[in-house]
């Protein structure tokens, strides 16, 4: 066997990047046992594509947030496959899941969850500091992202000194600062008034969407439906419909 044939034989197969960012197959999740047994996700099959913003909608208690937690690797499934950018999240140990979240997931919460004793810059820098980036470099990168979301003049403000919309923009900067491939958002406009919610979503779509990134938003707020590329509807723990958004904002 000559040298070149050895090289060819041992070279890993190079696949074209998949268009699918997140793939959930036959995912089941329940809470409790015995009399308190409650199935929350039932045979979920869902794909989220790279470069898209998917809205996950449905009535309260239908399992939207649980599904979001499963995708983000903060909740284990009972059965099924959770594949995020080719990583089988359902097979990772807890420590690897922690690392997986550090490197791949950005979070935006309904109540922002900004640490009140940290400035906007420090709050945004937190994911980088967690990932081990030097403190000053993390702050520098955080300032850049805060400027991107229009808060260049509020770098040293504490959360209590910011409006709700500004706080959510800080949260968006925090979710994006580590350049995650998947951003999960739980009711990002629920704590905002209508006009602020729309402004935040416009800014979010502009700053966050990229060809290599997928965004999943759980929402009840039909005013932000135009910002989604596709809409997945849930009912009683099942995905009942996934369709392109006919009213998508161009």
């Amino acid at each position: 066997m000559n040298q070149s044939s050895v090289a060819v034989a041992s070279a890993p197969a190079v696949a074209a990047p998949s268009a699918v960012a997140v793939s959930l197959r036959q995912v089941n999740k329940s809470f409790g046992s015995g009399n308190t047994y409650l199935p929350v996700l039932k045979d979920i099959n869902l794909e989220v594509r790279r470069g898209e913003l998917l809205l996950l909608v449905g009535p309260s208690g239908c399992g939207k947030t649980t599904l979001l937690s499963v995708m983000a690797g903060i909740l284990d499934v009972d059965q099924g496959v959770v594949d995020v950018f080719g990583i089988r999240v359902d097979q990772l140990s807890q420590s690897r899941k922690t690392r997986f979240r550090q490197e791949n997931i950005g979070f935006i919460f309904q109540q922002f969850n900004l640490i009140p004793t940290l400035t906007a810059t420090e709050n945004v820098a937190v994911p980088l500091i967690i990932a081990g980036k030097p403190y000053q470099a993390a702050l520098e990168q955080a300032r850049h992202y805060l400027t991107l979301v229009g808060l260049g003049e509020r770098l040293e403000h504490f959360p209590t000194q910011l409006s709700g919309g500004q706080q959510q923009r800080v949260a968006i900067a925090r979710a994006l600062v580590a350049e995650p491939r998947l951003v999960v958002c739980d009711e990002p406009t629920a704590a905002l008034d209508s006009a602020t919610g729309q402004l935040v979503m416009e800014m979010f779509r502009e700053v966050a969407l990229s060809p290599e990134r997928a965004i999943v938003i759980v929402t009840h707020d039909n005013r932000i439906f135009p910002y989604g590329d596709r809409i997945a509807e849930m009912l009683d723990g099942r995905i009942v419909d996934v369709h392109d958004n006919p009213n998508r904002m161009r």
Binding site: R101, Q111, I115, V126, I130
Partner: peptide, 16 residues
């Protein structure tokens, strides 16, 4: 607690 939860979600280990 909710901030510690957020830190955990963002990838901070329990021992950190």
């Amino acid at each position: 607690e909710k901030y510690f939860g957020a830190l955990k979600a963002m990838g901070a280990g329990s021992w950190t």
